[in-house]
Design a protein around this nucleic acid. Structure first.
Lengths: 138, 138
DNA sequence: GCGGATTTGCGAATGAATCGCATTTTGCGG
DNA sequence: CCGCAAAATGCGATTCATTCGCAAATCCGC
């Protein structure tokens, strides 16, 4: 994949740990928790302490290059690069299975918001209910 | 407001505590955390212990009469009655201000999902970015 | 009313996330 | 290239939401 690497967010010094977090996220094919990110860094060049990972992620979120999400019911947050694409899931309230939804007729709602002077950096939709396996057994 | 009160979810016994939780949610005009719900119950007929409130809420969510949501970055979940209406917010990643969005062109995406045998009980959309106050100071 | 199943009270335990502070690293100006 | 202030990290201790365990209380069909 030849996409331009994330522009480095201004105001943050370049450190091994921060670059490493970003590298992990760039390689990830799905959202990761802070713990998972920390784990994957261990095998890489520069491991980091968990609290550092949390701090780095928080800064990245504020800069808008990372998205923090939380999947229904899980108290643990997950993080992913903000690819400025839509990420939608249908989550089963029982077994927490996640079904991906690709398209999203949502964009039409956005101009209105931007008129209100809200600078949109991303969005996140969660649809919840029962998946086909859980609908019956109950 | 004369809307029919929530049908009692089958399979759950009617207890003072559960009725009380439901009453609090019916009167609430915004999503509440478990702690807030617990607090409001104290002034009512039947107070309950916090862990009980958590258990009751979890059951209500499974039955589909309550929605559990978590607003960006807050590790604390909030709960509200599932009014089967759309609830959307734009959340500022900096100050966490929430701007309500009323309409939602989302419904057209749903039939597809239901074809997949997913029984939709509600959905939740979060748009995040910078509100007009935080956009500048930075 | 009785009895078995469900629910609650309560505290202890868990686990994600944050905080504090001493030490290290970064990047700018000389 | 060097030094230094500011920023970032290591590390542990701490906070705080949520869950668990179990004995006592409550609910509901008979």
């Amino acid at each position: 994949m030849k996409e331009a690497p994330c522009a480095w967010p201004e105001g943050l010094k370049k450190t091994k740990q921060r670059e490493s977090v970003l590298a992990v996220l760039e390689q990830a094919d799905q959202p990761l928790s802070a713990v998972e990110i920390c784990g994957r860094m261990e095998t890489g060049v520069k491991p980091a302490w968990l609290s550092t990972v949390y701090r780095v992620l928080e800064q990245f979120v504020e800069k808008g290059i990372v998205m923090k999400t939380s999947v229904l019911n899980s108290e643990m947050a997950v993080y992913e690069l903000n690819r400025y694409r839509h990420k939608h899931y249908a989550v089963c309230v029982k077994c927490h299975k996640m079904i991906a939804i690709d398209d999203c007729p949502m964009n039409s709602a956005f101009p209105k918001l931007e008129a209100e002077n809200f600078e949109i950096m991303g969005h996140n939709l969660e649809i919840f209910g029962y998946c086909k396996d859980c609908k019956h057994e109950e």
